[in-house]
Design a protein around this nucleic acid. Structure first.
Lengths: 202, 202
DNA sequence: ATAGTTAATGACCGGCCGGTCAGCAAGGAT
DNA sequence: ATCCTTGCTGACCGGCCGGTCATTAACTAT
């Protein structure tokens, strides 16, 4: 009599499914991943998956959201609560944050976004509003804070905070394509931050 | 009796087909592009396409090759024939080369590579050998030449020429995702080169 | 116990698409 | 003209996969 064939666990399913989807997408990409494979990894039937997510595309969006938003939240929180100087923040928590991105689920999400963006324009909008613009704004706040402190000069970087994260995106792509070929992405990112600080310090 | 229903043009077909494939892949990505759509754009039947390319995957590889190799060749040629100082080369031809990449077919190829790499490991190898390692070697040669001239100091960049092109890759991705949102990628790349030169100049 | 609710199953369907092939017609040779 | 070669067509097939639905069985309330 022991175990019933399955348990009803309405609460837990969505998270379990998105986690399963993330791992499947990571291995095979979105288009090549069968919904049934995701269900299998989540330990449920395909039918049940469709009870929680209307379409494969909805599932995709949920995965993106679940991975990326917490990261941005964490960055903003760290920035707001920090009492470090701008330089110390960049060399400390910010550097760590940036070094953590390649090889994390965020890297996978970047790949998925790149591959699928054109077919999900609404997702691009969402990503822009909730990730990119928030992230860039945070960077700009650090830099401006530095300028106000007298730590930094006002330079082109203040208008192009993108320069700060370019090597992170580069590293994500590199790891994706050439995982085996050696490149010390931590060092790459650190050198880059060094260079920028040398350039903008008052 | 005018026009025959079709003409036999064995010589021209392959290039026309890869060009058609590039434009189709650019719009829809590899997985979502139907072979019949490529054939249509090339003005031929699907059957004929399969006469020139054994599988869809073969076609994909041919597209990648046709786009990317000429670029690397051009870069190497420019570098070998140039008599400019290292700094002048970086600020002149090299900058132009880098600024030209986002928005060109190379950008599309980068997207395709990112999206499909894991399913075509042999293509990644090919890409590595014929594009990436050649490109990095070229960069290193410029930098080393600068050091020998006494123009540059020897710095971390000599071992991490990746730093030079990171913002290019970033710009490619940006254009892909956020084409409409404004970012002056030319300026981004120029500022970055500026910064690097400031850092490494003797 | 019993009945009612609903989480969960898994067999099924329809259409899409990579790849094939029998035949056709354009060009060349004689 | 006539035949031969071969570039080219387009109808076709098979299987894969996103999505559905009738049914079942785990829980809840009484």
């Amino acid at each position: 009599m022991a175990e019933p064939r399955y348990r009803r666990r309405k609460e837990d399913r969505p998270d379990e499914i998105t986690a399963a989807a993330l791992s499947a997408f990571a291995e095979n990409g979105y288009a090549a991943t069968r919904v049934e494979e995701v269900a299998k990894r989540a330990g449920i039937s395909k039918g049940l998956l469709y009870l929680y997510f209307k379409t494969k595309e909805e599932l995709f969006k949920a995965v993106i959201r679940s991975v990326v938003i917490p990261r941005v939240d964490a960055l903003e929180l760290a920035l707001d609560q920090s009492t470090l100087s701008a330089e110390a923040f960049l060399r400390g928590p910010m550097l760590q944050f940036m070094q953590g991105i390649p090889g994390s689920p965020v890297g996978i999400v970047v790949r998925l976004m790149i591959a699928e963006a054109h077919r999900h324009p609404d997702l691009v909008d969402y990503y822009w509003q909730n990730v990119v613009s928030r992230g860039l704004a945070a960077l700009q706040r650090i830099l401006d804070r530095g300028v106000e402190n007298g730590e930094f000069r006002r330079t082109a970087v203040n208008e192009l905070p993108h320069l700060l994260i370019a090597p992170v995106i580069f590293s994500v792509i590199w790891k994706l394509l050439f995982e085996n070929r050696s490149l010390d992405t931590d060092r790459l990112i650190e050198c880059h931050i060094d260079m920028i600080l040398n350039d903008i310090k008052a």
